[in-house]
């Protein structure tokens, strides 16, 4: 099953856009309106990226022989199961 990719841009695309915005803002000849718009966009991107980082958790599932899938959790002490 292929998971459909969300229309939301991914983290790296956002980071790249943020970098581009910074570079564009560093140009002095930008109209003020554009400048403000870029800054707002940059702030939003920065916040979104931070949120993505804060929320980033891997989702781990165990695939059984029959093709089923169940959540795979580490032990309570944070340690993985050992032999």
């Amino acid at each position: 099953m292929v998971k459909k990719t969300t229309p939301e841009p991914d983290f790296e695309t956002r980071m790249q856009r943020l970098q581009d915005i910074v570079q564009e803002l560093e140009r002095a000849d930008l109209p003020l309106e554009k400048n403000v718009a870029l800054y707002k966009e940059g702030r939003a991107l920065s916040r979104a990226c931070k949120e993505m980082l804060d929320k980033a958790r891997h989702e781990i599932s165990l695939c059984d022989e029959q093709g089923g899938e169940s959540p795979f959790v580490l032990d309570a002490d944070g340690e993985g199961p050992h032999d």
Binding site: K3, A56, H58, S61, L62, C63, G80
Partner: peptide, 17 residues
């Protein structure tokens, strides 16, 4: 998985035992 916890941006990992 311990090392993975501090890395990446939240991925789906399927474990094939």
């Amino acid at each position: 998985l311990r090392v993975a916890q501090g890395r990446g941006l939240g991925s789906r990992v399927r474990l094939y035992p």
